Simulated scan of single mutants.
Amino acid sequence: MVEERKPRRSPAGGERVRDAERTRERILEAALVEFGEHGFAGARIGAIARRAGANQQLISYYFDGKAGLYRALIERWREMSAELNPPGAPIGDVVAAFVRVGAEQRHWVRLLIWQALSGERDEGDREFRQAMVGDLRRRQREGEIDPGLDPGFLQLALFGAALAPMVLAQFAEDFTGLSPESPEFREAYIEQLRRLLAHLGKPA
Protein backbone atom coordinates (compact mmCIF):
# COMPACT_ATOMS: atom_id res chain seq x y z
CA MET A 1 0.00 0.00 0.00
CA VAL A 2 1.42 3.31 -1.04
CA GLU A 3 1.20 5.98 1.61
CA GLU A 4 -0.59 9.01 0.32
CA ARG A 5 1.56 12.11 0.55
CA LYS A 6 -0.01 15.21 1.91
CA PRO A 7 0.54 18.30 -0.16
CA ARG A 8 3.20 20.60 1.25
CA ARG A 9 1.62 23.47 3.10
CA SER A 10 2.71 26.96 2.16
CA PRO A 11 3.84 28.98 5.16
CA ALA A 12 1.18 31.23 6.62
CA GLY A 13 1.61 34.98 6.62
CA GLY A 14 2.79 35.09 10.22
CA GLU A 15 5.37 32.38 9.59
CA ARG A 16 6.72 34.23 6.58
CA VAL A 17 7.08 37.37 8.67
CA ARG A 18 8.96 35.46 11.40
CA ASP A 19 11.21 33.80 8.82
CA ALA A 20 11.96 37.19 7.29
CA GLU A 21 12.75 38.64 10.72
CA ARG A 22 15.09 35.74 11.54
CA THR A 23 16.87 36.11 8.21
CA ARG A 24 17.22 39.83 8.75
CA GLU A 25 18.68 39.23 12.21
CA ARG A 26 21.17 36.67 10.87
CA ILE A 27 22.30 39.16 8.26
CA LEU A 28 22.74 41.91 10.87
CA GLU A 29 24.72 39.60 13.15
CA ALA A 30 26.95 38.51 10.28
CA ALA A 31 27.41 42.11 9.18
CA LEU A 32 28.46 43.15 12.68
CA VAL A 33 31.26 40.57 12.60
CA GLU A 34 32.35 41.46 9.06
CA PHE A 35 32.28 45.24 9.57
CA GLY A 36 33.91 44.82 12.98
CA GLU A 37 36.78 42.82 11.51
CA HIS A 38 37.31 44.75 8.27
CA GLY A 39 35.62 48.13 8.55
CA PHE A 40 33.15 49.47 6.00
CA ALA A 41 35.65 49.67 3.13
CA GLY A 42 37.03 46.17 3.67
CA ALA A 43 33.76 44.40 4.36
CA ARG A 44 32.35 42.21 1.59
CA ILE A 45 28.67 41.60 0.99
CA GLY A 46 29.43 38.07 -0.23
CA ALA A 47 31.20 37.25 3.03
CA ILE A 48 28.27 38.59 5.04
CA ALA A 49 25.81 36.51 3.02
CA ARG A 50 27.89 33.35 3.49
CA ARG A 51 28.25 33.94 7.21
CA ALA A 52 24.51 34.52 7.53
CA GLY A 53 23.61 31.54 5.33
CA ALA A 54 21.48 33.86 3.22
CA ASN A 55 21.17 34.76 -0.43
CA GLN A 56 23.24 37.83 -1.24
CA GLN A 57 20.25 39.40 -2.98
CA LEU A 58 18.38 39.45 0.34
CA ILE A 59 20.87 42.02 1.65
CA SER A 60 19.81 44.36 -1.14
CA TYR A 61 16.16 43.49 -0.54
CA TYR A 62 16.18 44.10 3.23
CA PHE A 63 18.84 46.78 3.54
CA ASP A 64 19.34 48.33 0.10
CA GLY A 65 22.93 47.15 -0.10
CA LYS A 66 26.13 47.54 1.89
CA ALA A 67 25.64 51.17 2.92
CA GLY A 68 22.10 50.52 4.12
CA LEU A 69 23.24 47.50 6.09
CA TYR A 70 25.95 49.57 7.76
CA ARG A 71 23.42 52.29 8.63
CA ALA A 72 21.14 49.65 10.14
CA LEU A 73 23.97 48.53 12.42
CA ILE A 74 24.75 52.07 13.49
CA GLU A 75 21.07 52.61 14.26
CA ARG A 76 21.05 49.44 16.33
CA TRP A 77 24.05 50.72 18.27
CA ARG A 78 22.15 53.92 19.03
CA GLU A 79 19.21 51.88 20.28
CA MET A 80 21.51 49.79 22.45
CA SER A 81 23.14 52.94 23.84
CA ALA A 82 19.74 54.30 24.85
CA GLU A 83 18.96 51.02 26.64
CA LEU A 84 22.28 51.21 28.49
CA ASN A 85 21.41 54.69 29.75
CA PRO A 86 17.85 54.35 31.10
CA PRO A 87 16.17 57.32 32.80
CA GLY A 88 17.31 57.72 36.38
CA ALA A 89 20.36 55.48 36.11
CA PRO A 90 23.43 56.82 38.01
CA ILE A 91 26.40 57.69 35.81
CA GLY A 92 28.42 54.87 37.41
CA ASP A 93 25.85 52.29 36.34
CA VAL A 94 25.79 53.67 32.79
CA VAL A 95 29.56 53.53 32.38
CA ALA A 96 29.62 50.03 33.90
CA ALA A 97 27.02 48.89 31.36
CA PHE A 98 29.11 50.19 28.47
CA VAL A 99 32.24 48.50 29.84
CA ARG A 100 30.38 45.17 30.02
CA VAL A 101 29.08 45.50 26.47
CA GLY A 102 32.60 46.23 25.28
CA ALA A 103 33.88 43.10 27.02
CA GLU A 104 31.03 40.77 26.02
CA GLN A 105 30.22 42.04 22.52
CA ARG A 106 33.57 43.06 21.13
CA HIS A 107 32.51 43.43 17.54
CA TRP A 108 30.57 46.54 18.54
CA VAL A 109 33.78 48.08 19.89
CA ARG A 110 35.63 47.18 16.71
CA LEU A 111 32.84 48.69 14.63
CA LEU A 112 33.10 51.97 16.55
CA ILE A 113 36.89 51.99 16.23
CA TRP A 114 36.68 51.50 12.47
CA GLN A 115 34.11 54.27 12.27
CA ALA A 116 36.39 56.61 14.20
CA LEU A 117 39.45 55.71 12.09
CA SER A 118 37.62 56.25 8.82
CA GLY A 119 36.45 59.70 9.85
CA GLU A 120 33.10 59.03 8.20
CA ARG A 121 29.77 59.83 9.79
CA ASP A 122 26.23 60.27 8.63
CA GLU A 123 23.85 63.10 9.41
CA GLY A 124 22.58 61.49 12.58
CA ASP A 125 25.97 60.84 14.18
CA ARG A 126 26.64 64.37 15.37
CA GLU A 127 23.10 64.74 16.72
CA PHE A 128 23.38 61.39 18.53
CA ARG A 129 26.70 62.32 20.14
CA GLN A 130 25.51 65.77 21.09
CA ALA A 131 22.58 64.11 22.84
CA MET A 132 25.08 62.15 24.94
CA VAL A 133 26.72 65.43 25.95
CA GLY A 134 23.26 66.83 26.66
CA ASP A 135 22.65 63.98 29.09
CA LEU A 136 25.76 65.02 31.05
CA ARG A 137 24.50 68.62 31.12
CA ARG A 138 21.24 67.34 32.59
CA ARG A 139 23.20 65.48 35.24
CA GLN A 140 25.06 68.69 36.01
CA ARG A 141 21.79 70.56 36.51
CA GLU A 142 20.58 67.80 38.84
CA GLY A 143 23.77 67.98 40.91
CA GLU A 144 25.21 64.61 39.98
CA ILE A 145 28.19 66.15 38.17
CA ASP A 146 30.31 69.14 39.13
CA PRO A 147 29.06 72.13 37.05
CA GLY A 148 32.67 73.24 36.61
CA LEU A 149 33.42 70.26 34.37
CA ASP A 150 33.05 70.64 30.62
CA PRO A 151 30.47 68.00 29.55
CA GLY A 152 31.95 67.57 26.07
CA PHE A 153 35.43 66.75 27.33
CA LEU A 154 33.96 64.63 30.11
CA GLN A 155 31.93 62.60 27.60
CA LEU A 156 35.08 61.99 25.56
CA ALA A 157 36.92 60.78 28.67
CA LEU A 158 34.08 58.47 29.74
CA PHE A 159 33.72 57.02 26.25
CA GLY A 160 37.44 56.40 26.12
CA ALA A 161 37.37 54.77 29.55
CA ALA A 162 34.66 52.36 28.45
CA LEU A 163 36.60 51.34 25.32
CA ALA A 164 40.08 51.30 26.85
CA PRO A 165 40.22 47.63 27.96
CA MET A 166 39.49 46.53 24.40
CA VAL A 167 41.50 49.16 22.53
CA LEU A 168 44.51 49.04 24.87
CA ALA A 169 44.37 45.41 25.94
CA GLN A 170 48.14 44.91 26.28
CA PHE A 171 48.52 48.18 28.16
CA ALA A 172 45.67 47.20 30.47
CA GLU A 173 47.30 43.88 31.30
CA ASP A 174 50.73 45.46 31.86
CA PHE A 175 49.27 48.20 34.04
CA THR A 176 47.09 45.97 36.21
CA GLY A 177 48.57 42.47 35.98
CA LEU A 178 45.18 41.12 34.93
CA SER A 179 43.99 39.98 31.53
CA PRO A 180 41.36 42.46 30.29
CA GLU A 181 39.45 39.45 28.99
CA SER A 182 38.96 38.07 32.49
CA PRO A 183 35.88 38.69 34.64
CA GLU A 184 38.25 39.66 37.49
CA PHE A 185 39.64 42.54 35.45
CA ARG A 186 36.23 43.68 34.29
CA GLU A 187 34.67 43.84 37.73
CA ALA A 188 37.75 45.42 39.32
CA TYR A 189 37.88 48.01 36.54
CA ILE A 190 34.19 48.81 36.94
CA GLU A 191 34.65 49.22 40.70
CA GLN A 192 37.56 51.62 40.19
CA LEU A 193 35.56 53.63 37.66
CA ARG A 194 32.65 53.82 40.09
CA ARG A 195 34.97 55.24 42.76
CA LEU A 196 36.34 57.74 40.28
CA LEU A 197 32.89 58.77 39.11
CA ALA A 198 31.70 59.21 42.69
CA HIS A 199 33.92 62.30 42.84
CA LEU A 200 32.38 63.96 39.78
CA GLY A 201 29.78 65.73 41.87
CA LYS A 202 32.37 67.28 44.15
CA PRO A 203 33.75 70.64 42.94
CA ALA A 204 37.54 70.80 42.88
Rank of each mutant, 00 (worst) to 15 (best):
A47T: 05
H38W: 02
Y70I: 04
F175W: 11
R76Y: 06
R18M: 14
E127H: 13
E123I: 10
D174Q: 09
P11C: 02
E104A: 14
A31H: 03
R137V: 12
D135W: 11
A20L: 07
K202N: 14
G102L: 03
E144I: 06
M1D: 08
R26S: 06
V17G: 07
A49D: 00
L69K: 00
P203T: 10
S179A: 10
K66I: 00
V101T: 12
Q115T: 10
D122V: 03
G14C: 13
I27E: 02
V95R: 10
D64C: 05
T176H: 07
G148A: 13
T176W: 06
R141H: 10
A43Q: 01
S60W: 15
R18Q: 15
S10M: 14
A30W: 01
D125H: 15
I91E: 06
A169V: 04
G143L: 00
S60Q: 12
Y189D: 08
E37I: 00
A12K: 14
G68S: 03
P180A: 08
G14F: 15
G148W: 07
A89V: 12
P147A: 01
D174G: 13
P7R: 07
L196K: 09
Q130G: 00
A188N: 12
V94Y: 02
F159V: 11
A188M: 09
R51M: 04
W108N: 01
A198V: 13
F128E: 10
S81V: 14
Q56P: 11
D93C: 08
Q140Y: 11
Q140G: 03
V133M: 08
A97V: 08
V2A: 11
P11R: 02
R137Q: 08
S118K: 05
R71T: 08
A72S: 04
E34G: 00
